[in-house]
């Protein structure tokens, strides 16, 4: 593989894995939300908000993918030649968000399922449930941070 292909593999991993994490997480919350809504339709707004939370990992993945594509010239006007070692550097950069995005999306979904059970009984406690979910998301944010720092650190 040439440099550019290795870099694009990185972009694909970031978007794909982090997106999967979000998809699974949102899926789990969605099931819980559906269970609650079938009994108490007036909580739709609240559950929708909770269901949106595990979506951030996918967004971070997309963001990473986009940055890589822009850097290697797939998007945009400038053409860039990427060496093999630069390609590997882009691949490495994608890994933190790909891995942490996958797992944190899933676990954030599980925490939010519990939050939905919480608001079935005590809707006023939604804020606390969200804080718990954010604890999980922290690690996706850190992964994004690492990813972005590596990306900015690559010499072209």
């Amino acid at each position: 593989m040439e440099g550019i292909e290795i870099a694009l593999l990185g972009a694909a991993l970031a978007v794909g894995f982090a997106g999967s994490g979000s998809a699974i997480g949102i899926g789990i919350v969605g099931q819980s939300a559906a269970g609650l809504i079938s009994e108490d339709p007036d909580k739709f707004g609240q559950t929708l908000l909770l269901q949106a939370l595990p979506g951030t990992q996918g967004i971070y993945g997309l963001l990473t993918g986009f940055l890589i594509m822009q850097n290697v010239g797939v998007i945009g006007d400038e053409t860039v030649t990427i060496t093999t070692s630069q390609g590997y550097a882009f691949l490495m950069a994608s890994l933190p968000i790909a891995i942490a995005g996958l797992s944190s999306g899933i676990y954030q979904g599980r925490v939010l399922s519990s939050t939905i059970n919480l608001i079935a009984k005590r809707p006023e406690e939604m804020g606390k449930g969200i804080v718990y979910a954010v604890m999980v998301e922290t690690y996706a944010v850190f992964a994004l941070l690492a990813t972005v720092l590596i990306l900015f650190g690559i010499d072209l």
Binding site: Q31, A34, G35, L36, E39
Partner: peptide
Amino acid sequence: DTVYAYSVARIKAIETR
């Protein structure tokens, strides 16, 4: 185990009654 997500949430809502 997430197959229980729907039913547990629904039971939580029903439980309040």
